[in-house]
């Protein structure tokens, strides 16, 4: 049963960075909604404002103007502490550079959000093992991150993103540091997740990558320039 409010609702959101005398409008009066289960690509060149959009979507930053509602909750008035909890529970981040902690095993990396969520050690381990199995790394759990290939590292990052069953998976150029085969593997995994009902927002500058998503939002100069629903997406979706 779908709730009657969208998962994400941006209403006239602007983000202004004050650098000395000059005010930069990184986001300029952006409004859109994203519903549960959507696979959205946000496309834009560097400097388009897509990173700022990602930061606000991921509750890493607050809008200067306008309103961002996540799950019906207005986030701009929340404390840092409350935003941290939202990031931990509702958002799963995937980064271009994987952002795995060195000197830690794949398992420990996946355990990290669970640790901050306050799970017991046994529960952390059990859940992390389950997630690593899901991304096909059950035979790499005790490998250190520097012993894994790029594709494997990104799969560890996906397992970490999914740890607390987030409402949104927020991926920032997830294939940017991967060869095309590994990149395609990651996108296939996204399609699988999407098929299971996971909401995914993927930020990219690459039209080909973006075309794999169900919906494409193009950003330029801090504004949304187009918002296309691609009806026929990946074969897996048909």
């Amino acid at each position: 049963m779908a709730q009657d409010f969208p998962l994400i609702k941006f209403e006239h959101v602007s983000k202004i960075y004050q650098t000395g005398e000059i005010a930069v409008r990184a986001l300029d009066d952006v409004s859109f909604t994203i519903h549960r289960g959507e696979f959205v690509a946000i496309i834009g060149q560097s400097g388009s404002g897509k990173t700022t959009l990602l930061d606000i979507l991921g509750c890493l930053n607050r809008p200067t103007e306008g309103e961002y509602q996540l799950n019906g909750q207005s986030i701009q008035t929340l404390s840092d502490h409350a935003l941290t909890t939202i990031r931990n529970q509702q958002i799963g981040f995937i980064f271009q550079t994987f952002q795995l902690l060195p000197r830690k095993t794949a398992l420990e990396n996946v355990q990290l959000p669970l640790l901050y969520a306050g799970l017991s050690r046994v529960d952390q381990r059990e859940r992390a093992l389950e997630l690593l199995t899901r991304v096909g790394l059950d035979n790499r759990t005790h490998h250190y991150t520097n012993q894994l290939s790029g594709g494997q590292q990104q799969r560890v990052a996906i397992a970490r993103a999914l740890a607390n069953k987030p409402d949104i998976v927020l991926a920032d150029e997830p294939t940017g540091n991967l060869d095309s085969q590994s990149g395609q593997d990651i996108l296939t995994m996204f399609h699988q997740l999407h098929a299971q009902g996971q909401t995914i927002i993927m930020i990219t500058h690459d039209q080909d990558i973006a075309s794999q998503a169900q919906r494409r939002i193009s950003v330029a100069d801090g504004k949304i320039v187009s918002d296309d629903q691609v009806m026929t997406s990946h074969p897996l979706m048909v």
Binding site: D80, H81, L101
Partner: peptide
């Protein structure tokens, strides 16, 4: 960057 990541995935200030 580690600190940024930890905060992004749920580390509070006191953590």
């Amino acid at each position: 960057r580690e600190i940024g990541l930890r905060k992004a995935i749920g580390a509070r200030r006191q953590d």
